[in-house]
């Protein structure tokens, strides 16, 4: 039995809708099961990579595959196995949808119309909301929640859904430390207890460093790939975050201090 690839890219190049090059010469492969963090500064093509994997953007060159499925030819297959959490500000707050309905969406989107919810669906929703400590607010309209609470609900939507790969785009952006801890803990536990891959785009490796198996360091191409230990390399950090990046050792931990994202702690 050969190793199973979670994600692989070959000579991948992607353009932004305005024609600028977002990604070029992207080559990598990551084994399954994995908890992968995609890190890099603003505009480094992290979200673009995820959107390309989901078939939301088309490669200008090369290909990217998820569990062996090509992002263009087999995007329907990919969308069956993926549970996606978009960036929080991509969620329209003009609709007074309740928290439970947002989470239920994760399950019902995987069904064909008329997408009726069963008691199994509702139980999954409550279980997922409990994991991020939002079950008390399940009747609350989603737009009335704080930023961190909204992010927790979106993570719960992914946890409640079905599919072997969770893809989260900046799920920790703009969250308070309480929400951040809850989200990281919930994802870490979920990865440990279930046979799922998690791919997470993030600014800051610090909160998730102990859960992550593979790190993809991006700056419009793959600058580095490896374990969190491998990535904490001064030359690589300077290349990505600029000359101000520093690796600091303190009490047996290594920290990366960058202008872009504060610091990434690392054991």
């Amino acid at each position: 039995m050969g190793r199973q690839l979670m994600m692989e890219a070959n000579d991948l190049a992607v353009r932004y809708p305005n024609g600028d090059i977002a990604l070029h010469d992207v080559n990598f492969s990551i084994d399954s099961p994995s908890f992968t963090a995609i890190i890099g500064p603003n505009g480094s093509g992290k979200s673009t990579l995820v959107k390309t994997v989901l078939g939301l953007l088309k490669p200008a060159k090369g290909f990217v595959k998820l569990h062996g499925y090509d992002s263009v030819r087999e995007k329907n297959r990919i969308r069956k196995i993926v549970r996606y959490v978009p960036q929080r500000d991509h969620i329209e707050l003009n609709v007074p949808m309740k928290v439970k309905d947002i989470v239920l969406m994760g399950r019902l989107l995987k069904k064909p119309p008329p997408r009726f919810s069963t008691s199994k669906d509702r139980n999954a929703v409550i279980a997922a909301l409990k994991q991020v400590d939002m079950d008390d607010l399940w009747e609350r309209p989603f737009p009335e929640l704080s930023g961190g609470q909204r992010q927790r609900v979106l993570v719960a939507r992914a946890l409640a859904s079905d599919g072997s790969v969770l893809m989260l785009d900046e799920p920790l952006a703009g969250t308070d430390s309480h929400s951040q801890d809850l989200i990281v803990e919930a994802l870490g536990t979920y990865h440990r207890e279930n046979d799922v891959d998690i791919v997470m785009v993030t600014h800051d490796l610090n909160p998730i460093h102990s859960y992550v198996k593979d790190v993809l360091l991006m700056k419009n191409t793959v600058v580095g790939i490896g374990t969190p230990c491998d990535i904490m390399d001064l030359d690589m950090m300077k290349h990505v975050y600029g000359p101000t990046a520093r690796i600091v050792e303190h009490s047996g931990h290594r920290y990366c201090i960058t202008k872009d994202s504060g610091f990434d702690r690392h054991d």
Partner: peptide, 22 residues
Amino acid sequence: ILFGKEFIYVSVDMEGSIAHGM
């Protein structure tokens, strides 16, 4: 009545709806 959920999903999260296969 038939597609109310879908219309709401498109309004709330177009990108997420597509990524989940709708």
